[in-house]
Simulated assay, not measured.
Amino acid sequence: MSENGQTDASRDIRLSSTVDRLPQNTRLKHLVDAVTNDSFNDWYDERLFTENILEGRPYFNGASPIPATEKHSPSKLLQCHRKVRYYGQNAPQEGDSPQGLFWIGSEFEEEIIVPYLQEAVTTDSTYVRNSLWIDTRVPTSGGDEVRVKGVTDPAIVDSDGDPILVTEIKTTSSLEYLDGPKPHHKAQLHAYMHALNSEFDRSIQDGLLVYGSRDTLDVRAFHIPFDDRFWRENVVEWMAQQTQFRDNGELPPADPMFDWECGTCPFRRRCGEHDGKYRDEGFTGLLPGVTSYRKQQLAEYFDAYPDAKLTPTLAEQHPDLATEHGVYDWECATCGSTFPHNRIDGSEDASPPLCEDCASNGELSDLTVPRPEEQVVGTESRRASER
């Protein structure tokens, strides 16, 4: 809803009516120019937002709650500790969203694998459940406990709905070089088996890891028996270490567990693995000069840190967010002058503007915006990020 009470739908109708009255060549150019990556992303994000409300899951819209220090998600196990901390603290994500991969994975599981299991795998006395909730506590070697909470992929169950075999379904670009289960997927499946073994009155010691090719729809399955040593020495130890980082309020070292993590990480610029301009940045603050934040990523960041603001460059890209959340002023480190973002033309990165006050005194001094650690995120949000 706009400030004057006009809905987005009514504006779209008026715009469509105006376009229809244009000459044919102009109308054609408008239609061609309207199909862009930005407009598609905005449309798809809004579609997901509306769908979440329709399906009764509005909690999916916006930032995730900061997890308790001992709580861990199966899908994040055995990955880069720093990346997992960034995710948990709702650090602003950069670049492309992985939602396309999530959508493909979900469709592959729901529309292909579940019917396949139902129709070609189960017997007269076994059935398929879409998922099972897990929530269990695990003792660590140090005497503390960690907690694993999440939801499984499809499970084959008996007539009472109790699990017999739990699965983990993953899609990949190709099966050609897949010579075994990936460790973090094996860890995820172990979390399911351990939790279900604790929560049901039967032994759950077997899992099935199924990879599907996004190109060919071929599948490859790996039987994963529960390995107590792998669980205790790799997975539980990883959770204990991540909990310690959280308890101490630390930014973990940039030490990815796998070679591919940095290339696909949405925090690689603030971490220092992109171009070296920034390094070891904390959990809050937008990176000046970085323009690869998508609108939905910014909206989720503001949901987590409502007192944060945009940088001037991002304000030009997203004027509606600038109006709603505000923009950091330009600052001069030499004379201390500040200038509203819309008074000064310039980039935060390649060509920062000059300070007008210094220039009037015959000096040349670049204007800057607050670095991430200097940006105010609000007392309540800071307390949340320190828990």
Rank of each mutant, 00 (worst) to 15 (best):
G285V: 07
L287C: 09
P288H: 08
G289E: 06
G289H: 02
V290I: 14
V290G: 00
T291D: 02
Y293S: 06
Q296F: 03
Q297I: 02
A299L: 15
A299S: 09
A299G: 07
A299D: 01
E300S: 09
Y301H: 02
Y301K: 06
A304I: 05
A304H: 06
P306K: 04
A308V: 08
K309P: 11
L310K: 11
P312F: 11
T313K: 10
L314D: 10
L314G: 12
E316G: 09
Q317R: 15
Q317T: 12
H318E: 15
G326Y: 15
G326A: 11
D329Q: 14
D329G: 10
W330Y: 07
E331C: 14
E331W: 13
E331D: 13
A333Y: 08
A333L: 14
A333E: 15
T334D: 14
C335N: 13
G336A: 12
G336P: 03
S337A: 15
S337I: 07
P340M: 05
P340E: 14
P340F: 05
P340W: 05
H341Q: 08
H341M: 01
R343E: 07
D345L: 09
S347T: 08
S347G: 07
S347R: 04
D349M: 08
A350Y: 12
A350F: 10
S351V: 03
S351I: 01
P352D: 03
P353W: 00
P353E: 02
L354C: 05
L354I: 04
C358F: 02
A359T: 08
G362W: 06
G362F: 09
E363L: 07
L364M: 08
L364P: 01
S365A: 13
S365V: 03
S365T: 08
D366W: 06
L367Y: 00
V369F: 02
P370T: 02
R371A: 13
R371P: 00
E373L: 06
E373F: 10
Q375H: 10
Q375Y: 04
Q375R: 10
Q375L: 11
V377N: 06
T379M: 09
E380N: 15
R382H: 01
R382F: 05
R383M: 06
R383C: 03
R383A: 08
A384S: 15
S385R: 11
E386T: 12
R387V: 10
